[in-house]
Amino acid sequence: MSTATYDMLVTKMTENLGVDASRVRPDATFADLELDSLAALELGVILEEDLGLTFDLDELRREEMTFGQFSAHVERLLAEKRSAAVDAV
C-alpha cells in the first residue's frame, strides 16, 4: 500500500511522533505503533494544521484502527474536502 497520502502520513509518524519507520505498516494498529491517546491527538492536530482536515478525536483514540485504515480515512476526508471546494465554485 503506497499512495501519496500514505507516504505523507508515514513521514508525519516518523518525523513528528518519532515512530520507527520500519514499524509503520498498513496492518499495524495504533497500539502496535505504541501511539497512546496523547500521541494520537497530537497527530490529529498536526494533520488539521497541515491539511486543514477536522478529525473526530474519538476516532483517533481507537487503538485497534490500523494504519492502513487510518490512511484510507484521511484520503476520504481529503477527497470530501476537494469536492466541497469544487461545489463551492
Binding site: 516518523t14 518525523e15 513528528n16 511522533l17 518519532g18 515512530v19 520507527d20 496523547l38 500521541a39 497530537e42
Partner: peptide
C-alpha cells in the same frame, strides 16, 4: 534522545 521522546 531519539524523536520518540523529543516530540513530546
Amino acid at each position: 534522545l531519539g524523536r520518540r521522546l523529543t516530540w513530546r
